[in-house]
């Protein structure tokens, strides 16, 4: 999680070798994804998880906040408590289902925000060039001068705990890499011959961006953004592990992992459950984005 740039701008740029992607291209991508078993399995796991956390209020067996001292830290499978109970006697399965809502929300929202903001700024910098490019890219350099976790922790720490602050600080962390990727992809597309010839025929900038640039850069930028989701999930839960996310007693995986630390001597398996959820989610997102990138890479 200490690195937000698992895919370099170069590797995203490599996808842009084929200008103007036709429908046939996307059909090919779909076909390749359907053939990739690992990607399909990961997608299926994520869908099941999404279903469980979305419909938690209707399908969860217990109340996530209602505990009882009489049944603290019961082991997995104890008397109707499928995954046992936590340190305050609350049902683990229920809390994991509810906890996933916040973990997913805080994990995915920053990437979506950063994709929108960073993507816009990056495409702008790449397409307009000149002074605006200079300004945006130099500002990006400053944020690149911080290790990403440190930046998120520092901003979050200064702002104080809370979901909104956590999302804000993480968005700030993910914007710079997205700007870099979008800028480099846009610059390479802008310099392609067919964009030059569109300019030569006198098309205005807006039309060029809409018709020629966006369709070709959105894919690579999107794929890059998906590589950040796995990292973001870990970072989000990490922040709330440090007490910078949701406030107790609201369930969230990172926070649950922290509060269960006291139980590692008595119920080690129980204490690791929230971590397994984070691991599986992040793993599936990473594999899914790898699969997507492979499928979109025309060289394969």
């Amino acid at each position: 999680m200490s690195n937000v740039s698992t895919a370099t701008p170069d590797s995203a740029g490599a996808i842009v070798s084929d200008p103007v992607k036709s429908q046939g291209y996307w059909r090919g991508v779909g076909k390749r994804v359907m053939r990739d078993k690992v990607t399909l399995v990961c997608g299926a796991i994520l869908l099941v998880m999404l279903f469980l956390i979305l419909f938690a209020p209707w399908i969860a067996p217990y109340d996530p906040l209602q505990g009882s001292m009489a049944r603290r830290l019961k082991p997995v499978g104890w008397q109707g408590y499928l995954l046992g109970t936590d340190e305050l006697g609350r049902d683990m399965l229920t809390r994991l289902m509810y906890g996933g809502r916040f973990s997913w929300f805080v994990g995915i929202t920053p990437v979506v925000c950063a994709f929108t903001i960073g993507g816009t700024l990056g495409v702008l910098a790449g397409f307009v060039g000149g002074k605006i490019n200079m300004l945006i890219m130099r500002a990006t350099d400053v944020f690149y001068a911080f290790p990403s976790v440190l930046l998120a922790v520092a901003i979050s720490g200064a702002l104080g705990p809370g979901i909104f602050n956590a999302i804000l600080s993480m968005t700030l962390v993910f914007i710079p890499p997205l700007i870099r990727v979008s800028e480099s992809v846009t610059t390479s597309v802008r310099n392609l011959d067919y964009v030059e010839s569109a300019r030569a025929t006198g098309a205005n900038s807006f039309t060029i961006v809409r018709v020629h640039v966006l369709p070709n850069v959105l894919g690579p930028i999107f794929v890059y953004a998906t590589t950040l989701v796995g990292v973001s999930m870990i970072l989000a839960s990490g922040l709330s592990f440090l007490g910078l996310g949701v406030k107790p007693p609201t369930p969230e995986w990172g926070m649950m992992l922290n509060t269960l630390r006291t139980a590692i001597y008595s119920q080690p398996l129980l204490a690791t459950l929230p971590g397994i959820c984070i691991f599986v989610t992040s793993l599936c997102f990473n594999l899914l984005s790898d699969g997507l990138r492979n499928a979109m890479d025309v060289r394969n």
């Binding site: 992992l257 630390r261 992040s282």
Partner: peptide, 15 residues
Amino acid sequence: AVAGVSIPHYWLGMV
């Protein structure tokens, strides 16, 4: 490699 970058290391520490 994928496991290495996907694992929440604070959880790995606990394990």
